[in-house]
Amino acid sequence: MLKQLVIICALGSAAILSGCQSSLPSAADVQTAQSLQLLQNRTWIATQIGNTEIKKTPQAHNIPSLQFDEATKNVSGSDGCNRLVGAYAAGRDTLQLSQMAGTRMACVNNGGIDSEFNQAIAKVTHYQAYGKTLKLLDRHGNLLIQFESAVQPR
């Protein structure tokens, strides 16, 4: 009888401990949450498309930008001329942009930055976010667009 009681207690303790252990987030879950926290709920201002640096002045209104809304999983922004909207799905370092749509205004005197931006956005599969920097990358890890955070996160 005593042996059965000890075995039952041991099994019960093991079950309780394994239940507690599974509720703790894994290191991968923590890294994913940290990456998403850096990506979302900020305004990202483009500083570079491919190898081309974007020159900006304080009065510039034609600089591409993006915002990733955590609550709705929507992405919005500008290609430097037209407004953009769409949906996104993000993981620790993966980023999928979908259902992208935009206005179609005539863009003059912007050096084709809107076209370059849209071509780059279509190739995005990954991202790196650290500090005030966001890099959008293609499937080979090549830099497509680099951004700088305009404001602190909400």
Rank of each mutant, 00 (worst) to 15 (best):
K56R: 15
G141S: 10
A90T: 10
T133C: 08
V124T: 01
Q37Y: 09
Q48G: 01
N62Y: 04
Q128G: 09
Q31D: 10
K56T: 13
S76P: 11
I16Q: 01
T32D: 03
R104W: 14
G91N: 02
N62I: 03
L144Q: 00
K132D: 09
D69S: 05
G102K: 04
I121A: 06
D93Y: 07
Y88M: 13
S76C: 09
L39N: 05
L144K: 03
L39W: 10
T72F: 02
S76W: 11
Q31Y: 13
K135E: 09
P58N: 06
D79G: 13
K56S: 15
A28C: 08
S65L: 08
L39S: 03
T103G: 14
L17V: 01
F117L: 04
T72S: 11
S98N: 07
L95W: 05
S13L: 09
Y130M: 01
S18H: 07
I113H: 07
S35R: 06
N51V: 05
A14I: 09
H140K: 14
T125D: 07
G131A: 05
H61A: 14
T43D: 11
A120I: 05
L95V: 06
A71C: 00
W44I: 00
L95Y: 09
S26L: 12
S115I: 02
E70S: 15
L17W: 07
N82Q: 13
N118H: 11
T125F: 02
S13R: 00
I145F: 04
L5I: 11
F68A: 02
A71V: 08
M100N: 10
K132R: 14
I63F: 12
G102C: 12
A27P: 01
L66D: 07
P58S: 08
A27D: 06
V151I: 03
D114C: 09
S115P: 05
Q119F: 15
F68G: 03
Q99E: 06
T52S: 12
N110W: 05
I8Y: 04
A120V: 00
N62C: 09
V124P: 02
K123Y: 01
I63D: 00
V85N: 12
S98R: 15
C9Q: 03
I8H: 09
A120K: 02
T32N: 12
P153R: 00
K135F: 08
Y88C: 06
Q67V: 12
A129I: 06
A33C: 05
M105Y: 15
H140F: 12
T103W: 12
R154P: 00
L84I: 15
E53Q: 10
L84N: 02
L143N: 06
I145C: 00
F68H: 04
I8C: 13
P58E: 12
G102D: 12
Q67T: 12
Q96N: 07
Q40H: 10
A122G: 08
I49N: 05
G131K: 03
M105D: 02
A150L: 12
G80Q: 10
Q59F: 15
T103V: 04
R154C: 00
G80P: 04
A129W: 09
H61S: 15
A90G: 08
G111W: 10
A46Q: 02
